[in-house]
Write a protein that binds this DNA or RNA. Structure first.
Ligand SMILES: [Mn+2]
Ligand SMILES: [Mn+2]
Ligand SMILES: [Mn+2]
Ligand SMILES: [Mn+2]
Lengths: 218, 218
DNA sequence: TTTAATATTTAGGCTTGTCTAAAAATAAAA
DNA sequence: TTTTATTTTTAGACAAGCCTAAATATTAAA
């Protein structure tokens, strides 16, 4: 059994591994978790003892197979609860993350089996992120961001890279969400900003925004 | 904000106050919480500082108004989640307590408002216990137990005093549950045991069983 | 009412998970 | 290749919540 703190470390390291595809540094973990590098070192050494990750001093860490499975399961729970909150309790997609952050630590195999059933086995959470299966397999869809589209290309928004409340509310205000069709009308090459068509409106967005929107080209 | 441990103490003291209608002793709390009296003293002194209960050395404790409100809210959450688990996820009534014990500590006002809505504002949990309202008011229904019925009296089972897995499974095996009609066929006065009619069957039960079944006489 | 039993509190210690400050290793710059 | 800057680890401390053992109050018995 892993504590709430341990589960959070494993989850964070899992995400960072996917992002950087290499050993995860102590400071990267500290950054993501809003904690101090010295605290991370302590915890990482403890988790190495429990063989859920490998760790060599000054060289960063990598999850073991069992570490990955535990992390994927926490992420599975997080995303299933997010689906529940949006689909059943009518929460908006920018309100669910913090609640799911708590719910993901509820310990009960059976609960998750039945929740998954109740939700009719969803494959994606409300932000377009894939839900790992019971075995801990995630199928990370090879996603393009809006910033990769060229002038006159069109696509459907399928997810967001960041899911902070601020970003999601920015999107809402502009009627951008999952399933929405976006067309690139103009693209500035010196800063990657672009003019896009969304529904009836045209709007100007920075590269930072475009880079955080996942798109399926059509 | 109160920690998980603090919430559990408040909840336990709330239940004990209702049971004994007087100052709750250190050892009574320790017993119910499966902990040591010395731990209880520590925590109770901390909670007195926070003014959620009053405490005088060697004299036991009583919740203050705010302490009662916090406790009732935790109980409200516990019972709403139990309803969710039984009504929506098809859990059986003997499986939900431990999961609700975790879920009751999820922090989100909005979540409970919406859960209550989703469940259509239930008034009782799956064991027949009343769900406190948002203001923390509980209306403890004046309940009779089966052991108070006399020969030839009939009633409907409306709840259970104990809700341990063992007891609930004992009841299930004998087709006793909420809504079931029970008739007292014979009663032994030296030990309170009785022969009862449940559905098509007659069965013999001890006073301990009868004393843990709440009944509405019809 | 004095003595014995029981209940409660205090003292001191342990684990988890965090922190700051200092030391050590690694990476970057000169 | 030294020197400097940055990253990481260690050392030592602290709060929360628990424990055991010892001291003290209260209650029950004699
Ligand atoms: Mn989330
Ligand atoms: Mn999500
Ligand atoms: Mn319960
Ligand atoms: Mn209940």
């Amino acid at each position: 059994m892993f504590s709430l703190a341990e589960e959070n470390y494993l989850k964070t390291i899992f995400h960072l591994e996917q992002e950087y595809r290499s050993g995860v540094s102590t400071s990267a973990i500290a950054d993501k978790m809003d904690t101090k590098p010295s605290s991370v070192t302590d915890m990482v050494q403890k988790l190495a003892e429990k063989e859920v990750l490998s760790y060599k001093k000054y060289k960063g860490t990598l999850l073991t197979k069992s570490g990955k499975a535990i992390a994927a399961n926490v992420i599975r729970k997080h995303r299933l609860w997010e689906v529940f909150l949006v689909a059943k309790l009518n929460f908006h997609w920018d309100e669910v993350h913090d609640i799911a952050e708590q719910l993901e630590h509820i310990q009960s195999e059976e609960l998750i089996i039945r929740l998954d059933e109740f939700l009719e086995h969803p494959n994606f959470d409300p932000h377009g992120d894939p839900i790992p299966d019971e075995q801990g397999n995630v199928y990370p869809t090879e996603k393009k961001t809006l910033s990769e589209l060229e002038k006159n290309q069109q696509g459907i928004c399928v997810g967001v890279k960041e899911s902070s409340t601020e970003f999601l509310q920015y999107l809402d205000k502009r009627k951008i969400g999952i399933g929405v069709k976006i067309t690139v009308l103009r693209k500035e090459y010196f800063d990657g900003s672009m003019m896009i068509q969304v529904g009836g409106n045209q709007l100007f967005i920075s590269n930072k925004i475009a880079d955080n929107l996942y798109i399926n080209i059509i």
